[in-house]
Design a protein around this nucleic acid. Sequence first.
DNA 1: CAAATAAAGGACAATTTTGTCCGAAATAAC
DNA 2: GTTATTTCGGACAAAATTGTCCTTTATTTG
Lengths: 161, 161
Amino acid sequence: MSENKIGSYIFAVNYLVVFSKACEYGIKATTYIASQSLEERRVSLKSIAEEIDSPVAFTAKILQTLARNKIIDSSKGPTGGFLIEKKKMDEIKLSQIVSAIDGDNIYKGCGLGLSECNASRPCPVHHHFAKIRNDLRKMLENTSINELASGLEVGLTYLKR
Amino acid sequence: MSENKIGSYIFAVNYLVVFSKACEYGIKATTYIASQSLEERRVSLKSIAEEIDSPVAFTAKILQTLARNKIIDSSKGPTGGFLIEKKKMDEIKLSQIVSAIDGDNIYKGCGLGLSECNASRPCPVHHHFAKIRNDLRKMLENTSINELASGLEVGLTYLKR
DNA sequence: CAAATAAAGGACAATTTTGTCCGAAATAAC
DNA sequence: GTTATTTCGGACAAAATTGTCCTTTATTTG
């Protein structure tokens, strides 16, 4: 009767302006670790995964990547766990986390996937995207983990639900 | 020796501000069909896939979805193919193509994947993303396929390489 | 040194997205 | 009506992303 079922196949449930899941977890984890480091507390993988509501083993992989990239600090054994030095918190920007996890083809790439796309040979949406993408880039490069962690510490922001 | 191999595992090669591949192809295809419709030419699946440099069969699926959603018009048989009525070109916005293909959870969803994230209970990046996401939404809702097709027709923009 | 604890990392599994193949259905031309 | 052409749509396959399991390695404590 009504055309309900019409056109109902969905290709991808991506969002626009998105991080991969890996990146989401990475940002949340880093923010949480930092907020705890502000209070001199080292945190374990388990508590991180719990706090940011992420799969433990997958989170472990991401933390390993972040540690290898010197974004976070890890140590083994009892009393081990993750932390971020306070003095580094202002230096660490969202952009670093993102490119550590998802690589740095981040700001490259045209909105329509053309390999060669620029102002003099643009894809149809190039100019429409230019400002938005640039705003996003600036935001990621200017937002420090300190800023994010502080908001969380004070209870202004949330990592779950 | 040097720390070359360090931190080299990449989780996802997504871009930020991205469409899914399906969406990319959908936008390109629609733009190409429209540009040809401006010159009264119906186009075939094969020529579309060639022109936008996409896998034929996958593109077929996407065109089917677009047709079911009345964004494009299709007809079978010899002399068949795809077209878009000129008078509809101003009405069709990028946002419609995107939600036909990827669903309309598009502007929902928080940057960090929280299900409940808003100004009064924000995730750490909520406010940072708000403007960017909103700009993107407005852009998608205001950009018509006519606009994109015209640029392409005049040779101002490109769909390949 | 032994035991306990926590991260590192390799191998593998599930899910999602992207891509392919092929027969069915519709339509135009002869 | 038969044939050729083109989209439709179901089933399947490949690749990428997300997620799990389990052993090894490092470190602290007794």
